[in-house]
Nucleic acid binder design. Sequence first.
DNA 1: CTGAAAGCGCTAACAT
DNA 2: ATGTTAGCGCTTTCAG
Lengths: 334, 334
Amino acid sequence: MKTTIYDVAKEANVSISTVSKVLNHTGSISEKTKKRIWQAIEELEYQPSVVSSARKMMKTIGLLIPDIANPFMAEMARAVEDSGRKKGFNVIVCSTDNNPVREEEYISMLKQKNVDGIIVATGLANSQAVRELIESDMPVVMLSRDVPHLPVDIVVADDFKGGYEAAVHLAQLGHKKIAVISEKINNTSIKNRVIGFKEGLHVSGIPIDEAFMADSPYDLSVSKEVSLKLLSRNDRPTAIFVTTELLALGVLQAARQLHITVPSSLSLIGFDNSILAAISDPQLTTIAQPTEEMGEKAIELLIGGMAREKQKKVIQRVMLSPSLIVRDSAASPL
Amino acid sequence: MKTTIYDVAKEANVSISTVSKVLNHTGSISEKTKKRIWQAIEELEYQPSVVSSARKMMKTIGLLIPDIANPFMAEMARAVEDSGRKKGFNVIVCSTDNNPVREEEYISMLKQKNVDGIIVATGLANSQAVRELIESDMPVVMLSRDVPHLPVDIVVADDFKGGYEAAVHLAQLGHKKIAVISEKINNTSIKNRVIGFKEGLHVSGIPIDEAFMADSPYDLSVSKEVSLKLLSRNDRPTAIFVTTELLALGVLQAARQLHITVPSSLSLIGFDNSILAAISDPQLTTIAQPTEEMGEKAIELLIGGMAREKQKKVIQRVMLSPSLIVRDSAASPL
DNA sequence: CTGAAAGCGCTAACAT
DNA sequence: ATGTTAGCGCTTTCAG
């Protein structure tokens, strides 16, 4: 059998409460007995179990994301995992596929497990399940998903700014005919990237051609097709902003097929700065999301939320600045 | 406060044990009271907590992997997550970075949390921590990592066969000068891929040129450099087998830089069939690991192991067949 | 400073 | 068919 606090108490000739106290650094225990107890703990290789209805902290959090197999999400998950670990928390990964049923199922499982908090980075931020979750007493923070009008802490990248900077960069390179391919999903982040981008174009005095605004679901081949169409026009764009890196790879494939060289004949700028940006050829100039910082901040807010449980608290919306990463997919037009 | 089994009991006018019984479908309860109890459960929105030392199942498993941000590992994790969920289990993701210290830390956390089992897909399968884990009473199954001489259930792809088939495929295409770039890591899987590949060459009557055997750490740029060297030789190979997809992308970049067209002037065959194979251009012909089946089998074995806890049991080593996926990176030499 | 004892939410004999 | 009760491993008053 596993060794319990009782075993330690017996070994050290004290009561379990004393052991509990030294374990939790509470109360005041004489150095002598403390030493004796720690010794017993070592000898018996005692590992305090976290599973006990008496304990309130499970030291575990749930992470709701669309799909852990999506490279960018995986990187985000890694950031959360790391920051969590540093604070002693484990994370349960929940891939929802943006499916409300799955979402509900996971939320229910997480509640039963008494997780200390949940980070919601899943798509359907507006689903009933998530709303209820937020209004329950479970600490929640939204990550990379904006939910207006709901009392939750939120951590997002400044998507508007990211889009804006992408536009300015392309403008400075001298592009005039600029297209956008955005991910077809009902998601504030994606929308803000586009809005910011348009604003950036506007400020740079570049007209926005609605015919150059395309979208595609999160699917490489569709994005390729869309790009093929876009690039086959007589007045084809000399630069494209793609809101999601995977889709940018589709553009790259389309360009290659049409013998359009990137970046000499077509500039491309992505968003995320996931591994996909680094492995593409040419490597993608992109707007980097501060993944690590976002994960860290999310954990920080979540833990904060656990502390002042039911009390009134100030809602925080943290917006982290993305940054332009210049690589090889964008250059001045010929 | 959360509603407990006591609240339900009170609401339904029965004792808590009766509630417990209907919850667990044990004992025999009259339909009437059953109905009454379920009604109370619904009304109070009671959610049984899994956190109780009385309960033995946490319905949670730990997954030790090198890095969730590695695309292939993420896909494997997703497979495990899905199979787990179907059986009612959540998974705690633990990225070890192949670091023994991290490994130990995570194992300790998982133990404290009383997880029902641990799937080890991490690199240092031979580290002391893992050995101890296996010899403890915690159900464990190794996934994608072979550990000879240890009493554990194991699920692996048949790497030898995969390598073998890759060789045969290239041979059938007519290649004679074939190189190998293998991941530089102390890992049986990788080694077996190479051994199988060599055997495949041998059987096909193709000499093995040791000068064509290269390796690279899991790093795109290094793999590119290695490839550059390999492809700059006068007698450069006409085909390359790469044990790990990420590295294959490095080869692709090198080839492009040297204006060597794939597949017409150079054939490439990878291993894994992760998303990387699909997004590369040209898409990678590759040996697919049966990820889903592996995850499923791992969960199955793990759950099996929980059942016959301490009893004697037969160790199983399950080897799943990989399969050749023909795409666009391998063709007959000119 | 230390310990006894009452819970926490639930399960599992053991009654009734 | 239902209820009583003794734990599970730990925290936390409350007394000494």
